[in-house]
């Protein structure tokens, strides 16, 4: 398994290289002169020269690339134009907030998606199944930022249960954290929960028709154990494979959701960078999040091989 992990990490290197090259190249997509776009119409010639020097745009391309990679290998993603601090520092400082909400949202997704999918499969073609299917379809069809706005209107403005936004760190006040993090987490979770429900339902239906489920029933063990042990263990594996996809949707969603709720995480950081044309921050954020996702995906794949004894133990015939 260690060998597998290492080989997956090695495979990720060329992809990571291409990803970083693309992130680097984004600044060249700016039509016309990048410095003019960044500086805005009021910038003087001196300002523009300063911007070019800061971003290294006055250097030849190959020098720029070389500098970019030299810095990257040292963990340096450049300096934010807006905040004046290193991009890496800003991201690391903000990441606990985003990670916290992401975990909360992931837990909601898994609990909601798995249970709905399993309930649907166990009631195949009955009304509970139909209801779960409709729930899942609506879940994957709603824009999450719109859902966030609807929840604010409903739970904050009309019912007054939760604050419209803001953020309280968990370490300071867990209840406060729960009050501020719940709506962002739920609005992020619903889409993925719909996705997970659909996958769980179809996998569960397939597993329930397997011979080993019939064997389990023939032993005279309880139906609860047949489903909760024998079926669930086999459903978990395909579900684990979509974890990477779920995390990816979750992290891209956080830009809009954190902006809406005023949560000071990586998403809001990027949202601000976009509206203020802070390109080093956009590039750095894009690269950072993507690299993190690549690593998480490898982790998920390793977890998968660990879950499946056919791969973990080997010696198959």
């Amino acid at each position: 398994m260690l060998g597998y992990t290492v080989s997956r990490l090695l495979q990720a290197i060329p992809i990571l290289f291409l990803v970083s090259l693309m992130a680097f190249g984004i600044i060249y997509l700016i039509p016309g002169d990048a410095a003019t776009v960044i500086g805005g119409p009021s910038a003087s010639a001196q300002d523009l020269a300063q911007i070019r020097a800061n971003l290294g745009l006055d250097q030849p391309l190959h020098v720029q690339i070389l500098t970019f990679y030299t810095n990257l290998l040292q963990g340096d993603l450049g300096r934010s134009l807006l905040l004046g601090v290193p991009v890496t520092e800003a991201i690391i400082q903000r990441s606990p907030v985003t990670i916290g909400i992401a975990i909360y949202s992931l837990v909601l997704t898994i609990v909601l998606g798995l249970s709905t999918g399993i309930i649907a499969a166990l009631n195949h073609n009955r009304w509970l199944d139909q209801a779960a299917t409709i729930f899942a379809l609506i879940g994957v069809s709603l824009p999450n930022f719109w859902l966030a706005l609807v929840m604010i209107v409903l739970f904050s403005v009309n019912l007054g249960w939760l604050p419209t936004g803001g953020y309280v760190p968990f370490s300071q006040d867990p209840i406060g954290w729960l009050r501020t993090a719940t709506m962002p987490a739920v609005s992020l979770a619903l889409l993925q929960a719909g996705l997970l429900t659909r996958i769980t339902r179809s996998t569960m239906l397939e597993v329930l028709s397997q011979d080993y489920i019939r064997t389990a029933r023939s032993k005279g063990i309880s139906e609860w154990k047949v489903v909760g042990k024998h079926a669930l263990a086999n459903v978990m594996m395909p579900v684990v494979t979509v974890l990477g996809l779920i995390l990816s949707v979750l992290l891209s969603g956080s830009i809009v959701i954190e902006t809406i709720f005023g949560v000071p995480g990586i998403g809001a950081l990027l949202g601000n960078a976009i509206s203020s044309r802070d390109y080093p921050m956009i590039q750095g954020g894009l690269l950072f999040v993507t690299a993190a996702l690549l690593l998480l995906n490898i982790l998920v794949d390793v977890l998968y091989t660990w879950l499946d004894p056919r791969i973990r133990v080997g010696g198959g015939k």
Partner: peptide, 14 residues
Amino acid sequence: AFPAVLLAIGIAAA
């Protein structure tokens, strides 16, 4: 490897 919406945002921002 880029999250879909995130990449679209990056390109559109440029």
